[in-house]
Design a protein around this nucleic acid. Structure first.
Lengths: 206, 206
DNA sequence: TTACATACATACATGCATGATTGTATAAAT
DNA sequence: ATTTATACAATCATGCATGTATGTATGTAA
């Protein structure tokens, strides 16, 4: 009804993204219409189609918003672990879980990715972003584990690639199950326990 | 067009369930219409609504079909492990993965549950079945781990409940990731590695 | 001040998807 | 042999959801 300034437009866009995050996370992507998102943001569908091409573009923008802090986290190499790749590996994986527990945006978006969005061709561009991030994470973990082997922190016979898949899958599984019922257990606690137990097991030869 | 015998009707029903399994697993539940399912089964929508109340009922029947072999598997207590609860625990979890690798029906249905179906209120009855099975599994695993502690196979200080959550989450995560890209790794191999490493870690005190 | 671009609201056209109803040919029961 | 129930096909009515096109009031630049 009214015309707004450039800053107001950005606020509207953010409102739309917030509303989408909430609604998608609560009711699922396919089950939420553009109309509902607009209403929740206090505008009409016209506003959405002004800011986003379509539903997919809306979701994509939503994802991009949280991928930023995630990428930042990955880049910061803790100085404390410069000569302790195994500890860094542990810290890296734990950081993901801690970010998840701390930031509600990350929580909603990961929840959408895991439980509220079908993994189909139509939504492929969204999942590509997710997969790329995951592969980056795996690659870095393999690198770190390899360094740990070279540093003598792990047995020479350690199969880094295979064990990193186990490790990352374990974290994925913990997040997956926690999001299903966040009151059932504490993510960070369980993740720590899981990491410690698994990494203790790494010391034993097969 | 034609009228069939009672056995033929059952065949039609099975065809519909098969078609639904394939299509849902390939394109997602929300993205697949009753029309498509009917066409894939070589009948019209009339046939579906004769055999099933609606889409949800169709999905539910689909799930029920595979829950049978799954439940059977859980009931068979291997005689080899009567006095080795830790080995039985390992065998139980590995059995799930082996069943998954072996049976394409289980594969499709678990794939639907994990990746092709939004976890929303509307589909709650479906996920309840899944959650119930998972909780049964967790409870039995806790029981077994407790027995292992009593048998002296694990340290007295072992926190069974917490560690079983880690274990089951790890298997979940492996399955989750494997279904995303079945060619990336061998489920059974990785699951064995994961179980062995984690259970080796159980021997170490915190 | 005029001209244009921006930020939406409103209205419209279209396209499925669902569920219900009805029709019908055949098996099964009596 | 007749009746009835079954197993579908075919049609219909309805309801969203999407995308687009248009209108309009306001900021913004010249």
């Amino acid at each position: 009804m009214v015309r707004r300034t450039k800053a107001d437009a950005l606020a509207t866009k953010a409102d739309l993204l917030d509303a989408a995050e909430r609604l998608f996370s609560a009711q699922g992507v396919a089950n939420t219409s553009m109309m509902q998102v607009a209403e929740a943001a206090g505008v009409t569908r016209g506003a959405i189609y002004h800011h986003f091409d379509n539903k997919l573009d809306l979701i994509d923008s939503m994802m991009e918003r949280v991928s930023l802090p995630f990428d930042q986290m990955l880049e910061q190499t803790s100085q404390r672990h410069v000569d302790n790749p195994l500890a860094l590996l542990r810290a890296r994986l734990l950081n993901i879980v801690e970010l998840l527990q701390r930031d509600p945006h990350t929580q909603s978006v990961i929840n959408i990715l895991f439980h509220k969005c079908e993994y189909v061709d139509e939504t492929l561009p969204i999942h590509f972003r997710h997969l790329r991030a995951r592969n980056n994470c795996i690659e870095e973990c393999i690198l770190l584990m390899q360094q740990a082997i070279d540093h003598g922190q792990l047995p020479k016979t350690t199969n880094a690639a295979k064990l990193v898949v186990c490790l990352v899958a374990m974290i994925d599984g913990i997040i997956y199950n926690w999001l299903l019922d966040p009151d059932y257990f504490n993510v960070v606690e369980v993740a720590e326990q899981a990491l410690d137990t698994f990494m203790a097991g790494l010391q034993q030869p097969a």
